[in-house]
């Protein structure tokens, strides 16, 4: 219906996206600044990338962060998918309301409270705080996000497909595994990606859950940034932004291509029809 942008819409979108992207753009530009003073341009240089890549503290933090993110998002995806099944399919069972409350609550409870409560738990249990406790903490909030994403897909799932599988001789478990799971796989994958990103991003909960032995990347960045601007952080930010942008753009291009291909195939099938 709308073939063109109206004057008003073009303006509001331009201003809006300028607000969203200019700060990031400035950050990227100044990561190539020669000067140690981040806000004073002193010529183009990639030296801060070099400094960053030789900074062992950062490299260690990256390692820990990735380890935490991969393990916690994988476990969270499994637990979250189970929880989604419980929410949508398991029917009534004692404590169902409590269960769904516990799924949705972590999404809205402030990080400082979640972090504090987990820390107190780990102390009460006598656990040594470190990578392990961060993983436990991340898995807990991530599984809630996964189960929300997956359950919204499960709700719209056409039950007759699963019934057809049952009719053709599958056990309920087989039907879920061989029919439902492949169809909801995109939701499961986006749940994993969401968990992974949240884990990479988390500062507050990690700070509470970790001990002196484990510093994640956001914790490291935070401790630097607290003291003010830092050219190494600019360089690091640029790298992280580049990775995310490439990832998101690629995946959306792939999704679009897949949907175009699918449309073409459907049209071709109709034409044969």
């Amino acid at each position: 219906m709308n073939k063109r942008f109206s004057w008003f819409n073009a303006t509001s979108l331009t201003l809006g996206f300028a607000f969203l992207y200019l700060p990031i753009l400035i950050l990227i530009i100044y990561s190539f600044n020669e000067s140690k003073l981040v806000t004073v341009w002193a010529g183009f240089s990639t030296k801060w990338y070099g400094v960053l890549l030789h900074d062992q503290a950062y490299l260690d933090a990256v390692k820990i962060t990735l380890k935490v993110a991969v393990v916690s998002s994988t476990v969270a995806t499994i637990l979250g998918t189970m929880a989604a099944w419980v929410l949508v399919r398991a029917g009534r069972f004692p404590g169902r309301t409590l269960f769904s409350g516990m799924i949705y609550a972590p999404l809205v409870v402030p990080d400082v409270i979640t972090g504090l409560s987990l820390l107190l738990l780990f102390i009460a249990m006598g656990l040594d705080r470190g990578v392990g406790t961060i993983i436990l903490a991340h898995t807990t909030f991530s599984m809630c996000y996964v189960s929300v994403v997956v359950s919204s897909r499960l709700v719209s799932f056409d039950m007759s497909l699963e019934e057809a599988a049952l009719d053709l001789g599958c056990s309920p478990f087989d039907a879920f595994r061989s029919v439902t799971l492949p169809i909801i796989a995109p939701a499961v994958i986006s749940g994993w990606l969401l968990s992974f990103t949240l884990s990479l991003d988390d500062l507050v909960i990690s700070s509470f859950a970790s001990g002196p032995s484990a510093t994640t990347l956001p914790m490291k960045i935070f401790s630097q940034v607290r003291l003010g601007l830092n050219p190494e952080v600019n360089a690091l930010s640029t790298i992280m932004i580049a990775i995310v942008t490439i990832g998101v753009v690629t995946s959306s291009v792939l999704t679009k291509r897949a949907s175009v291909r699918r449309q073409r195939q459907e049209q071709a099938a109709l034409a044969q029809g």
Binding site: P23, L229, I241
Partner: peptide
């Protein structure tokens, strides 16, 4: 996608970006 993209980039970095903009010599 343009609206969601910043959401995938680090929260901390997006806040940090404003230190450089709003500072005394920003």
């Amino acid at each position: 996608m343009l609206v969601i993209l910043p959401f995938w980039t680090s929260f901390l970095i997006r806040v940090y970006a404003w230190i450089g903009i709003l500072g005394q010599n920003g």
